[in-house]
Simulated assay, not measured.
Amino acid sequence: MGLFKKNPFGHILFLKKWLIRILGVITHARYKQFNKLEIEGSDVIRNLPDTNVLFVSNHQTYFADVVAMFHVFNASLHGRDDTIKNLGYLWKPKLNVYYIAAAETMKKSLLTKILAYAGSISVERTWRSEGKEVNRQVKMSDISNIAKALKDGWVITFPQGTTTPWKPLRKGTAHIIKQYKPIVVPVVIDGFRRSFDKKGLRIKKKGILQSMHIKEPLEIDYENESFESIIEKLEYAIEQHPSFLKVIPQEELLAYEEEHKERRWRKTKSGTSV
């Protein structure tokens, strides 16, 4: 690799490699020591092509989810079977992995800018901005950047656009799937909301069992399947379809509601928008 070789977004790959290595070493204990990450589906990762793969996942924190995926994907590609032990997999990380994130989130601090350089595709949310409801058109440059990332490698997206569970999926994901025809891999995560704060930067509680289930790619009829059908298929695959609420224990739902109320109270007390 040339010292100044760049990816399609102008990021220097040598620098990106070292950022992933350093961030990986710093964050590894969050999933291996302070908490335990249970993984299922490493073989799926190893059987994927190098480009045009879209990972679709539920969302629990801003950053801890995607950082865990970087660990799991690279460990799997280096022969680890459902484990992230032995940090050697960080020496040669897969550099063409991207994740879709809100532009306003990725611009807030030096740390988020560093995380953005490591692989984010920053997009402007069409429904919410700075804590307020908005209604604006999708930027075509955002769509073209997602297409560019798929052409170059793998893309991770959280189609609910929020860390609140069981919210409807954004239809833009179905449009991307029909237009660019990627291999669609569902990922289901759990335990991150209990382990970390909402941003996923601070460890909130130790000893939590986290889980990541990487499922087999979905069968999608790109030409004939409707947007609604694709969305419903994604909702079931990442276990966020409303029907799942019927089988979730009542105490778990109540615990989430209490946590959500507490978070809203803290934000209101600090004077931030909710």
Rank of each mutant, 00 (worst) to 15 (best):
M1W: 10
F4M: 14
F4C: 14
F4Q: 11
K5Y: 05
K5D: 09
K5Q: 12
F9K: 10
G10I: 09
I12Q: 08
L13Y: 13
L13I: 07
F14K: 13
L15V: 15
K17V: 06
W18Y: 14
W18S: 03
L19M: 13
R21F: 14
L23G: 14
K36L: 14
K36I: 11
K36T: 14
I39F: 09
V44S: 08
I45C: 03
L48V: 08
L48E: 01
T51W: 04
N52Q: 04
N52C: 04
F55M: 05
S57K: 03
H59K: 09
H59N: 08
Y62R: 10
A64Y: 01
D65P: 02
V66T: 07
V66M: 01
A68S: 11
A68V: 08
H78K: 06
G79D: 10
G79E: 07
N86Q: 14
L87W: 09
G88E: 07
G88M: 05
Y89L: 06
L90S: 02
I100G: 04
I100C: 01
E104H: 06
E104I: 09
T105M: 08
M106G: 00
M106D: 02
I114F: 06
I114A: 10
Y117N: 04
A118C: 15
G119H: 01
G119F: 00
T126H: 06
G131K: 09
K132Q: 13
K132M: 08
E133S: 13
E133F: 14
R136N: 07
Q137C: 12
S141V: 11
S141T: 15
D142F: 12
N145V: 06
I146S: 04
K148H: 13
L150E: 02
D152N: 14
D152P: 02
I156P: 03
I156C: 01
T157P: 04
F158N: 01
P159A: 03
Q160D: 06
G161W: 07
G161V: 03
T162W: 11
T162L: 10
T162E: 11
T163V: 12
T163S: 05
K167G: 08
L169N: 04
L169T: 09
R170N: 14
R170S: 13
G172W: 05
T173L: 01
A174Y: 02
Y180F: 15
K181Q: 13
P182C: 05
V184H: 01
V187I: 15
V188H: 08
I189L: 10
G191Q: 01
R194C: 03
R202A: 05
R202F: 12
I203S: 06
K204E: 12
G207W: 07
Q210A: 01
H213Q: 11
I214P: 00
I214K: 00
K215H: 09
K215R: 15
P217A: 00
P217R: 00
I220D: 03
E228F: 09
K233W: 08
K233E: 08
E235A: 12
A237R: 06
I238E: 04
Q240L: 05
H241I: 00
F244I: 07
F244A: 05
L245R: 10
K246E: 14
K246W: 02
V247M: 10
E252A: 07
L253M: 12
A255L: 05
A255Q: 03
E257H: 08
E258P: 02
E258M: 11
H260E: 12
R266Y: 08
T268E: 13
K269E: 12
S270G: 06
G271Q: 03
T272V: 08
S273Q: 10
